[in-house]
Design a protein around this nucleic acid. Sequence first.
RNA 1: GGGCGAUUGGCUCAGUUGGUUAGAGCGCCACAUUCACAUUGUGGAGGUCAAAGGUUCGAAUCCUUUAUCGCCCACCA
Length: 890
Amino acid sequence: MREIPSAYDPKATEEKWYKFWESGKYFHAQPDPGRKPYTIVIPPPNVTGILHMGHALNNTVQDILIRWRKMQGWNAEWLPGTDHAGIATQNVVEKKLAKEGIKRQDLGRDEFIRRVWKWREEYGSTIISQMKRLGCSCDWDRTRFTMDEGLSNAVNEVFIRLYEKGLIYRGNYIINWCPRCQTALSDEEAQHKDLNGSLYYIKYPVKGRNRHITVATTRPETMLGDVAVAVNPSDPRFKDLVGETLILPLAGREIKVIADSFVDMEFGTGAVKVTPAHDPNDFDMGKRHNLEPIVVMQPDGTMSRNTGDFAGMDRFEAREAILEDLKEMKLLEKVDAHAHSVGHCYRCHTVVEPYLSEQWFVRMKPLAKAGIEAAKSGRIKFHPDRWTKVYLDWMENIRDWCISRQIWWGHRIPVYYCIKCRKASEGKKGIIVSRVKPAKCPDCGGTDIVQDEDVLDTWFSSWLWPFSTFGWPEKTKDLSYFYPTSTLATAQEIIFFWVARMIMSGYEFMGDAPFKDIYIHGTVRDETGAKMSKSLGNSIDPVEIIDEYGTDALRFSLISITAGGQDVFLSKEKFELGRNFANKIWNASRFVLMNIEGGADQDIDLASADLSLADKWILSRLNRAVDSVTGSLEEFRFNEAANTAYEFFWHEFCDWYVELVKPEMTKDEFKGTQRKKIVQAILTHCIDNALKVLHPFMPFVTEEIWQNLPHEGGSIMASSWPKCDKGLFDDGAEQEMSLAIGIISVIRNIRAEFNIQPQKLCKASIAAGSGKSRDAITKSAEYIKGLARLESLDISDKLVRPKASSVAVFGDCEICVPLEGLVDLESEKRKMMLKIGELSKYTGSIEAKLRNKNFTDRAPREVVDNEKSKLAEANISLGKLKENLKRLET
RNA sequence: GGGCGAUUGGCUCAGUUGGUUAGAGCGCCACAUUCACAUUGUGGAGGUCAAAGGUUCGAAUCCUUUAUCGCCCACCA
């Protein structure tokens, strides 16, 4: 027999099997009308990404689903790919260029984009190779990139269709502007953080009168762009001032006091400075009162030319300078501490500026309708369900989506402008929305045509992912077969960014939801609860864990501690759980392999074979485990599934069955017997089924062992998922084994208590309280002798108690272990009394329950009957205990 | 300001529609290394399930309130 190492070595197996699967095309799926598809599209990681624990969890979940469904016979397709991640990638490449002292403007747009593509070629597959180390069974033949030609066509197509439908428009609005990235952001991309800021009270003198109005603001630097001061029309404090002229300090401009019911009289002073170019509410107010916005900031966050002495200063520098000046002029009344929430760029965490600029938007309300209906009707289902509400709240209050970005890396907006027409008129004229650059203007025939400089939000390509990746807008076979996909697995953070938008685009362009089930898993956090991220430096690198503990350990640990979409709190030690389990699987399998003599006898039919109690028991437990794991997976209860498999394998199969059959496997007297063949068949059957059930969680170790077992087919991943055979459920065997296990534990307990060395055999006698128990004990006598290390076991109806012995009661059985010279009468009594106390408390509580007429009348009969039988059982034990105590006393 | 989640043995967490004497992993204590596995085995200690009310025959589980922590959403300057 080949030597098998006594510890599982992940390094020796992982690469080997991954290559085997990949080259064997095990991950690939083709449309097959005869089979049902099970499709998952991956949440495409950023092409700049490196694998973090969030990815590890996310991809493990998907891989479990894919491998499981594939084994169940579905035509499983997991489509992978990466996202071009506009801002993030541009940032990375710009940083790299900066090291060479180059700015992107030095290169020009075309050259810069060429460099980004080059960067992508060099580094863009890092995350993909890391996902391979994770064991992901992605169909790499279908790998997509959001900037691929096909996907780019889809983006253009969608833009044009929505534009023609009137759902895309261009306009001047307040958007979130990141002065560092120098681009517009969508509302979702501005992350609000609560900051401890200040509320500044500034006096604005009233022209021609010896008084002033005090306004309160958190951003004094924007005052240079004020065009009015607004008060509530019903505010008596300011009634006489509405319509008056104020002198805007520092600027010296004259502005009016206006009345607008937006103003909250309770807040601040009740008077608000109106800065339409730098605040969304002020923008609306400005519109209502026909006030021209004044832009006082430049795209890089410095003050613009029209701010006098402050021109060129950074916005925060300008804030300080302005406050200094106001103080000097005695116009700064006071400063209050003020906690408020401030938007930050989700990519670079710079404070974003509400900023007036011309951008492209998607009108979302009409698109949201079908998606809302889908969640309400159950066409799409969130797991856990609580996310439905979060999703619906957002969808029902959806706002238009700012999709233009002032960067270079991305899908350029398919809009062209005829310079001549644009000059001639304002508005829509001269805008040509087209798949390709038009040769001439359809209106004036002019050839001076330029494309819009902006690119589209990255999410404008990812929201099409479930169908663009299968060839849309072409009507491909892939698309009609694999769409709609089955399950989406993702994190809570991108429900709005991505999930909701995919649902909307799915309905709009495919007429159906892109997936049925949405599994939202938790966020991976460190021990202190902080989200794991590279920038915080608190992340545990999955690749490091793989190197140290193995992929299977990483996967199993991660899954078993992820309950019901709760956040996962990680520390390195938690991976020991998976490592130890992988090793346990390895060694138990090693035992089986060493004892099946090259293969179980194929002629053994377990259904008709003469099975022992242990055999029946383990087959029953195995089938229950299979049933339970399958059920848990169907409900997306991954941790439950993993833990059930763990519990069965380790604490039933290894701890009991393997131990019970060891004599039959190793003793010469069983050599060549039918009995031995049966046990070999059962061991093989159990290992085979357990490996299959564990395979989605731990693909490598299960494949490695499975290949060494007698098997059909090329890979465990192409084998079929165990089917629960309910005919093998055996309540009788389970009860009998529980009794045997209980008795063994009791004897082991006594042995431990009296410090009897394992190698020393002892005697025991058991008095069975009933014929049923007696039969069970007789059947399991060899088990008890073996695992409780007994030289002899007497079974009787009545206990014959040798003088010096320890007696314990389990159920209706009395177990007596003679221990000459070791037993102390007093401590035996104490032990007995303690047990009697515990049991009496227990029986007392049941008796009280049964005495309660309300309970016996109202509770279901089975519950009452169950209580009665529990009481009867406990009373039998109690009786035996009391008898024994009495005996001790005489 | 609204919403969501969490609060269970020393630590980290399970606990499906209310019905077991509340479980696991780690840690701890004792014992064990010719035995597939010390990445192990055997035995053990340890919890009135955050608090207070309520519903119910019966509550860790459902309802209300409170406290603490965390997250998300929101245009009050």
